[in-house]
Design a protein around this nucleic acid. Structure first.
Lengths: 267, 267
DNA sequence: ATGTCTTTGTGAACGCGTGCACAAAGATGG
DNA sequence: CCATCTTTGTGCACGCGTTCACAAAGACAT
């Protein structure tokens, strides 16, 4: 999961737990697949398997939405697709803007999963004047100067940030000032936003690091970890030189502070 | 976070909670930034703010790693960077292979955040013969036929799947059979893997849908929904009882019955 | 040394999320 | 109409994660 929510402590919207909301898209995907195969109904067991979750959890999730099932039979696929879509707000059109048309931004612009879910790429924005007018995924890139106008003219409320880390906060501030209230952030930075603005982040690097952690653990299981100092080893002021990976280090020379340039895109 | 973990119920690796592991990369990023600015020490309060978390949570997280701070002073930045890197397994080289070099795969191959964290792209693999030999991000693409050989020859244990949804499971099976034990999946499909294999998934579409949910709720707050609670009155926008599809009518039209099309990667 | 001040590390309480297990609801067959 | 069988919906218990709040530990000044 390359995700991470931000803020929004416990405002359980109208009783639907955040964890449940996060799974609804999963159910929707599985249901859509069934719908395409013209399957009329599914049991919680079948659907749960298709969505990769526990059936009890699925039933409990659906119970928050209402009683849409039929005991002894299961759930009507089409009806459920509609209900979940409505709950998620996918029955309406959501114009989005993508800021930062680099490798990642371009990949996002070409992403086919947008339109099929009610999301419409209203505009592509980049700070590089050379990019202006150049079409990406059939949409001409516009310069950052137009940002505010684009957002207000199109009534955009969701913005995607795919810029380098250094520019993210600045872009974010402008988006928010222009009226954006939901942001999907691909830049490896913590964005600070005023209350009322939602931010979700996707960071591939983080996901890989989590995998590495487990991978290391698996590998170390056979060798039996050396347990290191049992007693609390007081932190010696002597900063142990950070062991640089045997790889071609010297990465931080690429650019700004963090040198991170996000590049992600779910298929 | 466009993230979502999979499996691994409660195997808290050596006592470090999964939630804590997921935050370590966040701390590491903030610490690295401080390190580059030559800041010698930070308090839990400062670091927490930089990482976007609560200070109490941060201290508790660090407590699982050991006592690396100094009361009254804070944490030694360099030392902590090293400890966390080591804990995450980033002090060693992790060769990874990327399968599926479409828009997404190419973006990933160009991602600068890999090398800087100890990850090295060992190979790019695609099923399209026309792609073979073509360099992407300086690395020549190899055909799927070579998959097994590439993995065993390079001792790769982490694989990234960026193929269309339809090919994901098949690719996954081959990766696992070849010895891969950690997979980062960008395809919108639930992968089934044997025990011992970790899968993490990133799905942009899901993140956007979650944002849409909250966005819709924000918009609806002004209209103030009429409580509707008590009697569990199933909201029948279409039909009270198990009404068949019927949905499209009220729907924003546009998309056909299918609507979804499992995010078929443009490739 | 001694006292004061800062910040960590953690015990404990609390709340959310998960999964079990079962009663209720409805379908189905006789 | 009744019996049986399937599957939902949910009460309940449990465990993880979060947060509070404070004692302990050390820095620093006197």
């Amino acid at each position: 999961m390359a995700t991470g929510r931000t803020h929004r402590p416990a405002t359980r919207s109208r009783g639907i737990p955040e964890a449940t909301v996060a799974r609804l898209p999963l159910y929707l995907r599985a249901l859509t697949a069934l719908s395409e195969r013209s399957v009329p109904t599914v049991s919680s067991e079948e659907l749960a398997t298709a969505a990769g979750v526990n059936s009890a959890k699925l039933r409990k999730d659906f119970s928050y939405l209402g009683s849409y099932g039929t005991r002894g039979v299961g759930y009507d696929v089409e009806y459920l697709v509609y209900q979940i879509s409505r709950e998620l707000g996918l029955t309406q059109d959501w114009p989005v803007v993508i800021v930062g048309i680099g490798n990642l931004g371009a990949a996002l612009a070409n992403y086919g999963g947008f339109a099929s879910r009610g999301f419409r790429v209203a505009a592509l924005i980049d700070a590089d004047p050379a990019m202006a007018g150049k079409p990406v995924a059939g949409i001409p890139v516009q310069h950052t100067d137009e940002l505010e106008k684009i957002i207000t003219d199109n009534g955009v409320s969701i913005g995607v940030i795919a810029t380098p880390a250094g520019a993210a906060q600045q872009v974010c501030d402008r988006l928010v000032a222009a009226g954006i209230t939901s942001i999907l952030n691909f830049a490896p930075t913590v964005l600070s936003v005023p209350d009322g603005v939602d931010v979700r982040k996707v960071d591939l690097s983080i996901e890989l690091q989590i995998l590495a952690f487990h991978e290391q653990r698996k590998a170390g299981e056979e060798v039996a970890a050396p347990e290191e100092g049992a007693g609390a080893v007081s932190p010696p002021p002597v900063s142990p030189h950070r062991a640089p990976p045997g790889a071609p280090g010297a990465d931080s020379g690429r650019q700004g502070p963090d040198g991170d340039v996000p590049a992600v895109m779910p298929a």
